[in-house]
Design a protein around this nucleic acid. Structure first.
Lengths: 177, 177
DNA sequence: CATGAATCGGATGTTCCGCTTCCGGTCAGG
DNA sequence: CCTGACCGGAAGCGGAACATCCGATTCATG
């Protein structure tokens, strides 16, 4: 593959990631191409259609999340700390994209499998955190995952924005009614 | 006005409120009409275009919120309790609609004025809650309002869903780092 | 009950927007 | 210098949603 082609492919991925994270799943192909400083034709040379691009991004992001979660889980730290790190790692990445993709039929088997793996990992971390008493017990792991989704997958989410911080604090156990 | 016309107008408003709250601002006129058990023609008889309907709903909801907030603020309870009641009152109403409308130019002056009033009320409640020590001080009132917007305006929000509860708990002051 | 005016219903017309294609021009690499 | 891979963006295409229009229907009144 020619050098400029490879460079342009990277630009497309970077720009697409950025735009999806900022504005959500509705971003158009034209916008992505323009943000990359390229024409739409070039975009379609690298990804045959929108779904191909989205799937590619989603799979990379999910695999990255899975690996990161596994790595943190292997550390000798509290499960709560694991959860915090994973959440902070996610915010600002295009997960809005992923969940919207994961829910709808056209998700590929590969993507679905990744979603299952990630969900399983998260559930395990959350349950253990509840067991060790660092995460409130009055909500189910599924509810916690749902919560995290809303907060982390919102367009424009940042690792250290107020909502993320407040939500994490609210998840701690405590004398709160 | 004929009795059936009045009844149908009510149905339209009810259905539109419901759909906007559930699915967000993207709901189509056809969907609203169908949910009301009516044809689109009837919908357009009562509201000349989409903006008219949306503006009408937004103004009602904002006025309702303002009045409710004022009423709670007049009670002899902590500002924190006021805030909690206002938040719970909002969740499940079509505020996603309102904020998306308030931000864009085509908002009418009346709507803009209502938004200002509501924001002023909220800011005052939040500041006083911080003063009385029932609301954490490490975030600004504007950030708190932003937070509330995300949580309360999300399609499908419920007054007692986990995210609302967790976020309110996270807003309390405490020994958290 | 009869009448006609108000109201309804939904097929139709229109516009807009985003995806995708296509091909002439350009450029990297040998 | 030459060639084939690569790029750019104008144009084609399709779907979706808004808004209109008019025949059918329903309410209210004498």
């Amino acid at each position: 593959m020619r050098a400029d082609a490879r460079r342009n492919r990277e630009r497309i991925i970077t720009s697409a990631l950025d735009l999806f994270a900022k504005y959500g799943p509705g971003v158009s192909m034209e916008d992505i191409a323009q943000a990359a400083g390229l024409g739409v034709g070039t975009l379609y040379r690298h990804f045959p259609d929108r779904l191909a691009l989205v799937t590619d991004l989603a799979n990379s992001a999910l695999a990255d999340l899975r690996d990161h979660a596994r790595a943190q889980a292997a550390e000798d730290i509290s499960r709560w700390e694991v959860l915090v790190r994973v959440v902070r790692h996610c915010a600002g990445r295009p997960f809005a994209l992923i969940t919207s993709l994961a829910g709808t039929p056209p998700a590929t088997p590969g993507t679905q499998e990744l979603v299952r793996e990630v969900n399983a990992l998260l559930a395990e971390i959350i349950e253990k955190a509840q067991d060790e008493g660092t995460l409130r017990r009055d909500i189910t792991p599924e509810q916690v995952v749902g919560l995290l989704n809303v907060v982390v997958c919102r367009p424009g989410a940042q690792p250290d924005d107020p909502l993320t911080t407040v939500m994490l604090d609210g998840l701690k156990p405590g004398g709160r009614r």
